[in-house]
Simulated scan of single mutants.
Amino acid sequence: MEAYQQLSRSIAGKTAIITGAASGMGRATAHLFASEGAHVAVTDLDQGKCDAVVQEIAAANYSGTAKAWALDVSKTEAIKSVVADIAATLGGIDILVNNAGFAIPADIAQDSYEDSWNPTLDVMLSAHQRMIRAALPHLKEADHPRIVNVASTEGLGGSPGNSPYVAAKHGVIGLTRGLAVDLGRDGITVNCICPGPIRTGITDAIPEEHKTIYAKRRVPLRRYAIPEEVAHMTLSCVLPSASFLTGAVIPVDGGLTIKNA
């Protein structure tokens, strides 16, 4: 019988890029990764908000570190420049978490529909492949390269008045599966997290009463999640020991997608 092999569950010393890290799930992931000893590149649109997250992480005295970069993921040249600077500053790239996103309601019957469609697909689908392409040369040099794309349970179904977001999130799942096949030969794993109802900036505008009604009706755990609960699943996907997990689409939704009635 072969000896038991101890696989590493540590990301200490790894370098991780997180997009949309100034708030919500991205911020929670940045904190968690730094607490686990990683060196985190906190990226988002607003430099000041990124700096604030870095200051929070520094004040927490985690074993890891964080630095801030302002980044508009709809801009290809900005992505190339920032990713190259991150790799040079932090000494490579081991982990990429594509998390940036927003939600704009859209009515297909209205002339304004493409005002939602174009930026939604640009930021929440096209940007993922731009980030991956920019980071790829560095990931290929990493010992345990990991990519996590954050989609949504909207990528597993749909809801009214939200079709650009739904289309983008379905696309993220397809991109994840396709790249898991393409990049497997390089030892790069590509997985997808599908959060359900989470307490983030996107859901802040929903009144608490409506959150409670929705959760009791649709979610077996009968509540909204906090961002940290999603961050921990993201961490699980980027561990060195997660070496045979790729192309996975993982709902973090309190059971929402498996509830029939």
Rank of each mutant, 00 (worst) to 15 (best):
G64N: 13
G64R: 08
T65N: 14
A66T: 10
A68N: 09
A70L: 02
L71C: 00
L71V: 05
D72R: 15
D72F: 04
T76C: 06
V82G: 06
V83P: 00
I86L: 07
I86E: 02
A87Y: 06
G92C: 06
G92N: 08
I93D: 00
I95M: 03
G101Y: 01
F102Q: 06
F102D: 07
P105V: 05
A106I: 05
D107Q: 10
I108W: 15
A109G: 07
Q110E: 10
Q110K: 14
Y113S: 08
S116I: 00
L121V: 04
D122I: 00
V123H: 03
M124I: 08
L125K: 01
Q129C: 08
A134D: 05
A134H: 09
A134L: 10
L136Y: 01
P137E: 06
H138D: 05
H138S: 10
K140N: 08
K140S: 07
K140Y: 06
E141V: 06
A142I: 03
P145F: 01
I147E: 01
N149R: 04
V150C: 09
V150A: 08
A151L: 12
E154T: 11
G155Q: 09
G158I: 05
G158N: 14
G158Y: 14
G158T: 11
S159W: 15
N162F: 11
S163F: 15
P164Q: 10
P164Y: 04
H170I: 03
G171A: 08
I173L: 09
